[in-house]
Amino acid sequence: MGRWVGPAGLLVAVAIPFVDASPYTLNVLTTAAIFVMLAAGLNIVVGYCGLLDLGYVAFMAVGAYTSGILSTAFELPLLYTIPAVLVVAVLAALVIGAPTLRLRSDYLAIVTLGFGEIIRITATNLDFTGGPTGIFGIPGIDVGGPAGFYFVCVAVVALAVLGSARLERSRLGRAWMFIREDEDAAEAMGVNTYRVKLLAYVFGAIWGASAGVLFAAHLSAVSPQSFVFLQSALVLMAVVLGGMGSARGVVVGAVVISVVPEVLRDLGAFRYVFFGVVLVVVMVLRPQGLWPVRRREPERVDAPVQEGVRV
């Protein structure tokens, strides 16, 4: 059954515009898709590797600003900016991670919070980022209107989610989880924990920055107000609510967190009070999240004896 969950979810995501393609619905859907991508990226850092990053939208800001600045300054199509975005995202991950990843986990949390603010304030203060007003007139990805762009987003996000799930079940993903479970034991097994944590940051940054590009294309503008701590906290909530380390749980969590405020629009700030309470309640009563990973694998596969494998 498990293997059908992903395709089924994808099918639903693709089907909705055929039912309701109003600009409002498409806007909510596109925003939700981008949010799912952010959550998948943060899940690598927090869920797999156990590093609390409270300034994750900084990476999204890096991606959005890089593509926005390049595309408006040089009149490039947005797609052409992606290589530069990836390079800048990796650099940002290294710059932020290198000094902080040697720290204890709780220090790391607050330092990432600080970094998130540094990026935002810097974007507000500098001229080439457009100051407090940001950057306007970013070219979109024009593929048949808002519905077309939504499908592009769904495709990219589906790949991102699949990619993060594949990483989870690999040598690198296991190394992340070894660190999350017991850093000392991981070291004793020869895991270069510092390097492996940096890689978690790098992958998280790539996911976040790519989501930033979609974000810039969607709004055709970026401004510092989009990257406040509230955003980082919401992404974190999506990851925690769905179940840290669980790819599908996180997707569901992200959809819930991005759609619920739309439904509860009338409640104003109470929505966030509600989120805060939910965060505490989940941690106290159900720390594994709503749809946690059930880590199981086949007991023993009677694999044919491979030549040269058995010692």
């Binding site: 927090v46 156990g50 609390l52 409270l54 986990s105 709780d106 949390a109 906290a233 974190l236 925690v240 840290m244 104003g268 700030a269 109470f270 929505r271 966030y272 009070v273 989120f275 805060g276 309470v277 939910v278 965060l279 505490v280 941690m283 106290v284 720390p287």
Partner: peptide, 28 residues
């Protein structure tokens, strides 16, 4: 207190939740 002895990550996330609740509680 219910989380004393839990992994650090869980407690930190709880603290973020508390912060959120207080901030937006006042705003609300």
């Amino acid at each position: 207190r219910p989380l004393r002895g839990s992994p650090r990550l869980a407690v930190l996330i709880t603290a973020v939740g508390v912060s959120f609740t207080l901030e937006y509680g006042v705003a609300a």
